[in-house]
């Protein structure tokens, strides 16, 4: 992008935030923020599962670590000042990245199903720890977390986080590191023989992915104002997985489109007369059908913008 188009983009981005504050009702505003948070979670999972081919079912665990860290920090260290949220969310992301690194230590040898179970187990262990940790509310959850003062701020910061996540993960995907990961998941033994340390690459991929999972967690906590271990169960991981699969494993920008669809779609069905979460009926059906009809997701491994460019463009 040229400097001019960057400035135009920035102005539009900020202007939209201010404008939407007046033109959207609070229900739509809440949906917009939750779509953004979902897309950060999905991009984070997409990097580890789509790009690095490490099947993770533990998104909820990293999100939980980020959410709790950020929530506790704002309350106990930063006196509930909302402008510290970006900082605490960042610290939460770092703690989550560290957790991701720990998970990757024993699991670099594991593939496919086994890794899925270990990451799932990690998320469960995290949840049980928070469940038993009375200082952060135990099963009752953590209350009265400081929230954004208005929609514009929530939009600007969360939106910036989405853009940064997209930029960083996409840059890494097309970099030498992405090539390493791609080669690794094509043929580990050959990649190793050609001089790539398997474990180190996988650990780094985990670290990066869980960083953004934790970041999403921080924004989640301050968007909701309340978190509990129940919010970070297996179902959250599955929801994130479904978004990622729908967008296309390996298509970072696809995850954003898919999270719009999967955030809006269940809202349209909300009027159905049932007590059960409709999403949990619609999502799995969608997932099963996808696997049969279009297993590569909407965009496969490609990014959205490649569809607008002519053949041969870079």
């Amino acid at each position: 992008m040229s400097l001019k188009s960057k400035i135009i983009f920035l102005v539009c981005f900020v202007g939209l935030g201010i404008a939407l504050n007046f033109f959207l009702n609070s229900y739509i505003q809440a949906l917009a923020i939750s779509f953004m948070i979902n897309s950060i979670m999905a991009m984070s999972l997409n990097f580890i599962t789509g790009v690095a081919n490490q099947f993770s079912l533990g998104s909820a665990g990293f999100v939980a670590v980020g959410a709790y860290t950020s929530a506790v920090l704002t309350k106990e260290v930063f006196n509930d000042q909302w402008y510290f949220i970006p900082l605490t969310a960042l610290i939460g992301a770092c703690v989550a990245a560290f957790a991701g690194y720990l998970v990757s230590l024993p699991s670099f040898k594991l593939k496919g199903d086994y890794l899925a179970i270990v990451t799932l187990g990690f998320a469960e262990i995290v949840r049980v720890i928070f469940l038993n940790w009375n200082h952060v509310g135990g099963p009752r959850g953590y209350n009265a977390i400081v929230k954004w003062p208005n929609f514009t701020m929530a939009y600007l910061f969360t939106g910036a986080a989405v853009l940064i996540t997209l930029y960083v993960l996409y840059s890494l995907k097309i970099s030498w590191f992405g090539r390493n990961l791609w080669a690794l998941n094509e043929d580990e033994i050959a990649a190793e023989v050609m001089g790539t340390p398997i474990a180190k690459n996988k650990r780094t991929a985990f670290l990066i992915s869980s960083f953004f999972g934790g970041l999403a967690g921080g924004f989640y906590a301050h968007n909701m104002g309340y978190i509990s271990p129940g919010s970070f169960g297996f179902l959250l991981s599955v929801q994130v997985l479904i978004i990622t699969v729908l967008g296309g494993l390996g298509s970072i920008s696809g995850s954003i489109i898919a999270s719009i669809i999967l955030t809006v779609l269940p809202e349209l069905l909300r009027s159905l007369p049932t007590k059960v979460d409709v999403r949990m009926i619609v999502f799995p059906i969608l997932l099963i059908l996808m696997m049969i009809v279009r297993p590569e997701g909407l965009f496969g491994k490609k990014e959205i913008w490649t569809f607008f460019k002519k053949e041969g463009g870079s």
Binding site: F55, L57, G112, D113, A116, L235, V238, L241, V245, L249, V276, D277, M280, I281, F283, P284, I285, L287, I288, M291, I292, P295
Partner: peptide
Amino acid sequence: LNVLITAIGVSILFQF
């Protein structure tokens, strides 16, 4: 991986 994802889908579908 597709089969595994399908299996998760079937499981959640039956639960809910």
